[in-house]
């Protein structure tokens, strides 16, 4: 593990090791994708959420390589450590935001990520009757896929979203089990 504080590591990687593209380009591309999914699934938001999670999972499987290569971060010693790395380095280097880690369960296996400034959510106003839609559900899939590649099987889900009028945007991440070495297959 690096001796530098994680926040500084995250900032340095973002500044020096990341090729960048316009955030609006990504937000609009993602938005078009979500809108397309809503049309394809005829506003069955449960299926849209599922599809976003699957796509996120596939992205996570590949993103982790990028993460490990660019951040130089080694194995985490605890799940608590993992959470800090996810927020201060992972989110920082890919999205240039640092979600807050909080709400730990007593057994140390569940935490929440609070995203104060979601780059994917710019300009978004959800359509009427879309209370079931977790617009940024792709994050849950990415977390799931990336962590699986580092031998952690997790369950990640949205608890609340400011786009839905809630007070905060919160993702709950729960460690299910530590995996033995196996290469997961991409989800169709």
């Amino acid at each position: 593990m690096t001796s530098k504080p994680l926040k500084a590591v995250g900032e340095e990687v973002w500044k020096t090791k990341i090729d960048k593209v316009n955030a609006e380009l990504v937000a609009l591309t993602y938005g078009s994708l979500v809108a397309q999914l809503c049309r394809d699934f005829e506003n069955n938001y449960d299926r849209v959420n599922e599809q976003l999670d699957k796509m996120g999972y596939n992205i996570g499987l590949r993103l982790i390589e990028d993460f490990l290569a660019r951040s130089g971060i080694g194995r985490c010693s605890s799940f608590k450590d993992t959470a800090e790395v996810i927020s201060k380095v992972g989110f920082k280097m890919f999205l240039n935001v640092v979600p807050r880690v909080s709400n730990w369960s007593a057994d140390g296996k569940t935490f929440s990520l609070y995203i104060d400034d979601n780059p994917l959510a710019d300009f978004v106003e959800l359509p009427p009757q879309s209370e079931n839609l977790w617009y940024s559900n792709i994050y849950c899939g990415v977390l799931r896929g990336a962590l699986e590649m580092t031998q952690m099987q997790v369950h990640a889900e949205f608890v609340s979203d400011v786009l839905q009028g809630h007070a905060a945007t919160e993702i709950k991440v729960q460690l299910l089990q530590i995996l033995k070495d196996e290469i997961p297959a991409a989800e169709e």
């Binding site: 609009l28 938005g31 710019d122 300009f123 978004v124 106003e125 959800l126 359509p127 009427p128």
Partner: peptide, 19 residues
Amino acid sequence: SGVSCNPFYVPPDKIHSAK
């Protein structure tokens, strides 16, 4: 512009945005 950038807004829909 904010309205037109909403992915759920398809021009030339009527504008129903709370924002």
